[in-house]
Design a protein around this nucleic acid. Structure first.
Length: 853
RNA sequence: GCCGGAAUGGCGGAAUUGGUAGACGCGCCGGACUCAAAAUCCGGUGCCAGCGAUGGCGUGUGGGUUCGAGUCCCACUUCCGGCACCA
């Protein structure tokens, strides 16, 4: 074994060994427990970023530890290959998205191989291939026939200059990103998937997901948003006809405090009113300006205008004005709300602004009226007042009584309302999976029959930013109706890329299956035992996947309902940011690698200068790695310099998986240093003759085995950073041993196995070089030896009055009484008791004694 | 705005889930080796006061519960993620 650690050759050799043996190829094996470990597949954007390296290293650690624990492990990898960035790159470089995507995949695949991940490449898939997306189409036609996919209008961002639909991301401060034109809302026909049909089940099943973080389950619960309330009607007469304005409320107990109703600008009443009043028409138009993002809408200044229409209060019979309000969402509930200014913050602000009455109908802790400013208590539950026959009722009694009275009049009933909306999947974009529908003038929307699938996406087009090129391509859209054979037009919208990623985890079980979406192998591998990915996917991707799993179940493809048994959500990777303001007043972001930092005697940053020209720069804290702040760290540069094992070790060691990770080049050096020390120790053992048991063996074994015990505990918590620390502690202990004693070999073989999932290449080499075995992948996971952990004496912490004052050693067998006596006679306690009466003595077995005085 | 998180030395983080706060590492300080540098090795390092023994303070802020709080409760501050067409 050579003295110098050379990661390049060590890594090449280990990877060649795994390739030759097909070490990571997984086969179904009913005799062993299976472990399907999956990291979220990447979008092939060009090259791996640090977030990928982190995600896949975490997945690889889990994969490799489970292998060593005897599981039949499958860890696949694929490409989420459709999407907007390919179209943007296509426009910028005049290259078809397909070519750009394929080249990116090839490069990134080589990078993943270089990192030594235990991936089964035989299962590789890409969502942009017809072999994959034909099953998107197949499933869509099934859902369409069942009514679970349907057409209705949806609202999109419209760029009036480019005449194109914009993604939310392409809207910057309410303007189109390319044209700068103010964005408008536009309603267009779209296909929707009826996820709301599964709302109750998706919500209820969260409780059973014991392997998911509570935080993610809570976010999903709130997103689905079940609320029980009352749907009720305000009757009105219009053009001689009796009509009803329906609203939904969770606060029917406040119904008697209603002083107005408000409808969304897209509501039929708004359209009716706008026809008769130019100012209203202008206001409705104004509401159509701007983007569709909820975050923007929620922060709009609350504005409204009264229509001339009045409605009748369903219980009191009072006439109430109907307003158009820009804060009423057409997409939630009925697109109309009842305004109860005294007990709803938005209604309060609205009524104050427009001088509407604000009668208090719920008693709250601060009194029976609602003076300015608004207080959260006003919206609390309480007893009804000023509400006629409902006075004195509490929330539940009032809701029950009011719902019953409404029902008797045929003007309302209790109803469950969901915040969750059906999933609009139509995208007016080229680089996606074509929606398999043919529009026939006589037969309507006809799903493409199975034998005509897949509807192939032409791969040679280059979009130009003015709408979908498919819609300008008669060779694509001119077709015949599958039903009647007459001329018809093919749908040119493609699917939301979330459709592609909502079932890919299942396809990994049988990516080569040409005759079906899934086969028997999926029944063996699914569900995914461990899923790993960014917290930013906590709601949409994970909820859509849970929905699709149920859709596939109901198609008879799989029996299970939940796709992911355990979920680990990793944190983001951040880096330092530095800038300087140029004389021209421009802010220039300087890459952290180009900055030289000077520190004071305590290591605090004093100043920072740009290395090449000495210009002073300002440290602006840490932030997500981004082009705009010029602080991205390229993992490839790191791998080239230190090797894959150092990159993997650092990323595991720097932070627990769920935390954000703040990048530091200096700390990477420390990780490299550790691996060099590890190598050097291995080389020293390798060159030494085996010695007899030494005097320090007992102490070294105690240390190694107690650290191992803790490491195994931490591994169970997925706290991998302290597992890496444990490896360092083991090496520290072993380096104190004088030679190659039995404890040295035992300890080193434990260390190499603990580290093998994190830094597989160097461990592969050391394991073989020291003759511990042929392949560390085949080794079993180490467990602590109870005999090594035996101790005769225990050190107790001594506290007096809750303050730590020192420690004392006591025999292991000492009981509470013996310890009480021991502590009261001890020098350390005597000093602080100082003759005061001892009230009691608290003993925490094996840890601490507290004398209360 | 709404929903969900996070906050511990100069820095990343640890604390066996209410029991010695700061493990492990980075940085910094001092030393060894070297003609010198790099690499490597050894020692020190929460803050304040003190030559020192030692004493006081200390886990974002303000309260509370407890023999004992980084950990539990209440109220806030700041930062981060998501908000349905980025993936």
């Amino acid at each position: 074994m050579q003295d110098r650690y050379e990661p390049r050759s060590v890594e090449r050799e280990a990877q060649a060994f795994w390739d030759a043996r097909r070490s990571f190829h997984a086969e179904e094996d009913p005799a062993r427990p299976k472990f399907y470990c999956l990291s979220m597949f990447p979008y092939p954007s060009g090259k791996l970023h640090m977030g990928h390296v982190r995600n896949y290293t975490i997945g690889d650690v889990l994969t490799r530890t489970h292998r060593m624990r005897g599981y039949n492990v499958m860890q696949p990898m694929g490409w989420d290959a459709f999407g907007l960035p390919a179209e943007n790159a296509a426009m910028a470089n005049k290259v078809p998205p397909a070519k750009w995507t394929t080249e990116n995949i090839a490069y990134m695949k080589a990078q993943l191989k270089g990192l030594g991940f235990a991936l089964d490449w035989q299962r590789e898939l890409a969502t942009c291939t017809p072999e994959y997306y034909r099953w998107n189409q197949w499933l869509f036609t099934r859902l369409f026939r069942k009514g679970l996919a349907y057409k209705k209008t949806g609202v999109v961002n419209w760029d009036p200059v480019d005449q194109t639909v914009l993604a939310n991301e392409q809207v910057i401060d309410g303007r189109g990103w390319r044209t700068g034109a103010p964005v408008e809302k536009r309603e267009i026909p779209m296909y929707f998937l009826r996820i709301t049909a599964y709302a109750e089940e998706l919500l209820g099943a969260l409780d059973g997901l014991s392997g998911w973080p509570e935080q993610v389950k809570l976010m999903q619960k709130n997103w689905i948003g079940k609320s029980e309330g009352v749907r009720l009607a305000f009757p009105y007469r219009l053009d001689g006809e009796d009509k009803r304005l329906w609203v939904f409320t969770t606060r029917a107990d406040t119904l008697m405090g209603t002083t107005f109703c408000a409808v969304a600008a897209e509501h039929p009443i708004a359209a009716w009113a706008a026809k008769r009043d130019a100012r209203l028409a202008a206001f409705v138009e104004e509401c159509k300006q701007g983007a569709v993002m909820e975050a923007d809408l929620a922060q709009l200044e609350k504005k409204g205008m009264p229509t001339r229409l009045t409605v009748t209060h369903p219980l009191s019979g009072k006439e109430l004005p109907v307003w158009i309000g820009n804060y009423v969402l057409m997409g939630y509930g009925e697109g109309a709300v009842m305004g109860v200014p005294a007990h709803d913050e938005r209604d309060y602000a609205f009524a104050r602004k427009y001088g509407l009455p604000i009668p208090c109908v719920i008693r709250h802790p601060a009194g029976d009226d609602v003076p300015e400013p608004w207080k959260p208590e006003y919206a609390g539950y309480g007893t009804c007042i000023n509400s006629g026959k409902y006075d004195g009722l509490d929330y539940q009694a009032a809701v029950d009584a009011i719902a019953a009275d409404l029902q008797a009049k045929g003007l309302g009933e209790k109803q469950v309302q969901w915040r969750l909306r059906d999933w609009g999947i139509s995208r007016q974009r080229y680089w996606g999976c074509p929606i398999p529908i043919v529009h026939c003038p006589s037969c309507g929307d006809v799903p493409v029959p199975d034998e005509d699938l897949p509807v192939k996406l032409p791969e040679h087009l280059v979009p130009d930013g003015t709408g979908n090129p498919l819609a300008k391509m008669p060779e694509f859209y001119d077709t015949r109706c599958p039903s009647c054979g007459n001329a018809a037009r093919r749908e040119t919208d493609t699917m939301d890329t979330f459709v592609d990623s909502s079932w890919y985890f299942a396809r990994f079980a049988c990516p080569d299956q040409e005759r079906a979406m899934l086969d028997q192998r999926a029944k063996y591998w699914l569900p995914v035992d461990q899923y790993i990915g960014g917290i930013e996917h906590a709601i949409l991707h994970l909820l859509y996947s849970r929905f699709f799993q149920r859709v596939m179940r109901d198609e008879g493809l799989l029996a299970i309902s939940e796709p992911f048994t355990h979920l680990l959500t990793q944190g983001m990777v951040l880096a330092e940011t530095y800038y300087r303001d140029t004389p021209q007043g421009r802010r220039e972001w300087v890459h952290p690698s180009e900055v030289q930092v000077t520190r004071d005697a305590k290591g605090r940053i004093e100043s920072a200068r740009r290395t090449n020209d000495g210009a002073e720069v300002v440290f602006a804290g840490v932030g997500t790695m981004s082009k705009s702040k010029n602080n991205g760290v390229d993992p490839q540069a790191l791998i080239d310099k230190y090797g894959a094992d150092t990159a993997r070790f650092y990323i595991i060691f720097a932070s627990p998986p769920t935390n954000t990770l703040e990048w530091s080049d200096e700390s990477v050096e420390g990780s490299f240093r550790f691996l060099k020390r590890l190598w050097a120790y291995g080389a020293k053992l390798h060159g030494a003759a085996t010695a007899a048991r030494g005097a320090f063996d007992r102490a070294a074994r105690l240390e190694v085995h107690s650290v191992l015990k803790q490491a195994n505990y931490d591994l169970g918590k997925h706290q991998f950073n302290t597992v890496a620390s444990a490896a360092m502690k083991m090496l520290n202990a072993l380096e104190k041993l004088p030679g190659r004693t039995p404890a040295a070999d035992e300890g080193f073989s434990i260390l190499v196995r603990v580290l093998a999932p994190i830094t597989p290449h160097i461990c592969h080499h050391l394991w073989r070089a020291l003759g511990y075995g042929e392949d560390v992948l085949q080794a079993s996971w180490p467990e602590p030896d109870p005999a090594a952990l035996e101790q005769d004496e225990i050190e107790y912490v001594v506290q007096v009055g809750g303050k730590t004052r020192g420690s004392l050693r006591a025999p292991k067998a000492a009981d509470q009484k013996a310890l009480e006596t021991l502590v009261q006679t001890s020098e350390v306690a005597q000093k602080y008791i100082a003759g005061k009466p001892v009230r009691k003595v608290i003993v925490v077995p094996g840890r601490l004694i507290n004398v209360v005085i």
